[in-house]
């Protein structure tokens, strides 16, 4: 079992950890005919049990901290975590707010950051390609 087997067949589960819904709409936009990420074998699934990639949006509010950890643990290995948007990457406009449990990487390990407020669908697809290269490198190491 290695990460390389995930290549070209990434099933995506979307976690909203307190996002404003901007990034979420852009994720849905990348599924539409114009961008069509199903070309790369990606599919939006309804439960973390089926997922290979967690798309995390939002800066992780205190309320969502435990739930995000649980979703991460429910996802079967091997898995990749992608953060979509400035909030998840750095805290964004909520930087150092008393309501935050951190940016996402303070709660769960993150593999790829896609910045932007919100990022364009092209940027999300580029993030997926980066996830691929990362997966391939890890496959070579093993």
């Amino acid at each position: 079992m290695s990460l390389k087997d995930l290549n070209r067949s990434l099933w995506v589960f979307h976690v909203n950890s307190g996002s404003c819904n901007g990034c979420d709409i852009e994720i849905v936009a990348s599924l539409t005919p114009r961008y069509d990420i199903e070309r790369f074998g990606m599919k939006l699934v309804g439960t973390p049990r089926h997922a290979d990639v967690l798309l995390v949006t939002g800066p992780v509010t205190r309320d969502m901290e435990k739930k995000l950890k649980r979703v991460f643990e429910q996802t079967p290995d091997p898995k990749v975590v992608m953060v979509i948007g400035n909030c998840g990457s750095t805290g964004g406009v909520f930087y150092e707010s008393y309501n935050l449990a951190g940016p996402v990487d303070q709660v769960i390990p993150v593999d790829v950051y896609v910045t932007g407020c919100p990022p364009r669908p092209e940027a999300i697809i580029e993030g997926v390609v980066k996830a691929w290269t990362k997966i391939e490198k890890q496959g070579e190491k093993k």
Partner: peptide, 24 residues
Amino acid sequence: QARIGPPLSQPFIDVKKLFMKENI
């Protein structure tokens, strides 16, 4: 749906991947 769609071999890739994944 006016999309391009996945390659023909996509179900094979999916099945191969599912058999490699952790079984919870």
